Amino acid sequence: MTQLDLIRALPKAELHVHIEGTFEPELMFAIAQRNQIEIAYQSVEEVRQAYNFHNLQSFLDIYYAGAKVLILEQDFYDLAWAYFEKCAEDNVVHTEMFFDPQTHTERGIAFATVLNGLKRACDDAKTKLGISSHLIMCFLRHLSEEAAFKTLEQALPYKDQIIGVGLDSSEVGHPPEKFARVFAKAREAGFLIVAHAGEEGPADYVWQALDMLKVNRIDHGVRSEEDPELMQRLIRDKMPLTVCPLSNLKLCVVDDMREHNIRRLLQQGVKVTVNSDDPSYFGGYMNDNFIAITQALDLTADELKQLAINSFEASFISDTEKQMWIAKIQAL
């Protein structure tokens, strides 16, 4: 079996994907027309050209501009369903999707509208495609602590439909400690905890996420390598990192995929996983990310299998389900 065949055959869990970041230009344009919303682009091709941003902030600008066409429950369903179809193509059998309610509630969209559309797609993906999923609600870190508390209050009635809370958006200048009290309350309410740290921000943000937010997983975390003591901590605690290689390349966290540290992290015993982040903007879904790092870093079959195993071990599914998928990977 070639490396490419193995990548396609491996069952995978995706643990770091922003559902708003799976918005393909065709769907964005179609929903804008359906909802009669003016956007700054005259064609799908113009939308696609706008996706050629140069840093995190310019990406976020087009990301939020696109999100404004999402108005109705059906819009959120269509967005998520399109992503699940990509999962089916890439043999992603479980996904834990981020969604950003503040992106929508700030525009006057009801929290329930967002959640109900996404949840209905999750239910259909299970019955029609055999793909399991969890929803993780993220706070936008460029907004205030007060706004995050408000969003947490909105989420509490839907606690049985949301497995965890996370922290995303512009990292630099917005350290995890800014939201320590919100996450403490979220933990008390029974949510699992994840947070973006150590992508554009320093290794110190990873320490803060571990010690102040008490995370179950670190999203990104690639700059942890700059701190040997932090690396020892991650390895000792088996703390997962949800790494997004094509995203790191597009946002210039690395200048060349051959410079990416995911293989070094894996070889040192860090529980790294492969994920797509915002695939419609960053040029690839799960298999595209696996292929990119395999070609650039010459990953072995055993390393590819370990990355897939890590994805299930780091997921929030039951131990029984984890063992079932890991056995299937080991049998390949």
Results as ranks from 00 to 15, higher is better:
residue 58 S to C: 08
residue 59 F to Q: 05
residue 62 I to W: 03
residue 65 A to H: 11
residue 66 G to K: 07
residue 69 V to H: 06
residue 69 V to M: 03
residue 70 L to H: 05
residue 71 I to N: 08
residue 72 L to S: 15
residue 73 E to A: 10
residue 74 Q to N: 14
residue 75 D to E: 11
residue 75 D to F: 11
residue 76 F to M: 05
residue 76 F to K: 01
residue 80 A to L: 07
residue 80 A to T: 01
residue 80 A to W: 01
residue 85 E to M: 12
residue 85 E to F: 06
residue 86 K to P: 06
residue 86 K to Y: 05
residue 89 E to R: 12
residue 89 E to H: 07
residue 89 E to W: 04
residue 90 D to C: 05
residue 92 V to A: 08
residue 95 T to A: 14
residue 96 E to A: 07
residue 96 E to Q: 10
residue 97 M to Q: 09
residue 99 F to R: 04
residue 99 F to P: 00
residue 104 H to F: 05
residue 106 E to F: 10
residue 108 G to A: 13
residue 109 I to K: 05
residue 109 I to E: 11
residue 110 A to M: 10
residue 111 F to P: 09
residue 111 F to N: 12
residue 112 A to H: 15
residue 115 L to R: 04
residue 116 N to I: 06
residue 118 L to A: 05
residue 119 K to M: 10
residue 120 R to M: 03
residue 121 A to R: 03
residue 122 C to K: 12
residue 122 C to Q: 14
residue 123 D to G: 07
residue 126 K to A: 10
residue 128 K to V: 01
residue 128 K to E: 13
residue 129 L to N: 03
residue 130 G to S: 12
residue 131 I to M: 04
residue 133 S to R: 07
residue 134 H to I: 10
residue 135 L to I: 08
residue 135 L to S: 04
residue 136 I to Q: 04
residue 136 I to T: 06
residue 137 M to G: 06
residue 142 H to P: 02
residue 146 E to M: 12
residue 146 E to C: 10
residue 148 A to I: 01
residue 148 A to L: 03
residue 150 K to Q: 15
residue 150 K to D: 14
residue 150 K to E: 15
residue 152 L to Q: 11
residue 153 E to A: 12
residue 153 E to C: 03
residue 154 Q to R: 15
residue 156 L to A: 07
residue 160 D to A: 13
residue 162 I to A: 02
residue 164 G to Q: 06
residue 165 V to F: 07
residue 165 V to T: 07
residue 166 G to P: 01
residue 166 G to F: 00
residue 166 G to K: 02
residue 167 L to I: 08
residue 167 L to V: 09
residue 169 S to H: 00
residue 169 S to D: 00
residue 169 S to E: 00
residue 171 E to L: 00
residue 172 V to L: 15
residue 172 V to P: 05
residue 173 G to R: 00
residue 174 H to R: 00
residue 175 P to V: 01
residue 176 P to H: 08
residue 178 K to S: 15
residue 179 F to D: 00
residue 182 V to Q: 00
residue 182 V to S: 01
residue 183 F to K: 01
residue 184 A to S: 15
